[in-house]
């Protein structure tokens, strides 16, 4: 087991896969981080050198991911709502924010548009 950003990953997990479990790291960001520390795309967590793991941890702790990022997103939505903007209201009502139709197909907005927006990641809200 290897510790990355405070979480345990089995040795045979791909580095790419394990990084993308964090809220705020998708394919693009993951690719950038891996390129930065010269980790090839099929590298396994167990195959990383100690220095690389330390670098990775340092980099991840610098980044705004997981709860910090969630908080930022939530703050942005809350600000809109507190100002009484249309976008804020639409978020609060779990309706589409950017002018989409509401007659049908609002499943995504009903799922996502709320003040306490969580998303997926290592830490579950």
């Amino acid at each position: 087991m290897v510790f990355i950003f405070g979480f345990n990953f089995p040795e045979q997990t791909l580095v790419k896969k394990s990084l993308q479990t964090f809220y705020g790291i998708g394919p693009q960001v993951c690719q950038r981080i891996m390129a930065r520390f010269h980790i090839h795309k099929t590298a396994k967590v167990g195959g990383l050198k100690n220095a690389q793991v330390l670098d990775l941890n340092a980099e991840l702790s610098q980044m705004k991911i997981e709860n910090d990022l969630r908080r930022e997103v939530q703050d942005n939505i809350r600000r809109l709502r507190d100002m009484g903007t249309y976008r804020g209201r639409r978020h609060a009502m779990a309706l589409p924010v950017r002018g989409q139709r509401t007659r049908t197909q609002t499943a995504t907005s009903r799922k996502l548009n709320k003040i306490e927006r969580g998303g997926s990641g290592q830490i579950k809200l």
Binding site: H38, H40, K41, T42, A43, G47
Partner: peptide, 17 residues
Amino acid sequence: LGHTEYAPLPGSTPTQY
């Protein structure tokens, strides 16, 4: 193919791997 470990060669300009 990018399937094996790589690292920059120290002291090479432009960087070699």
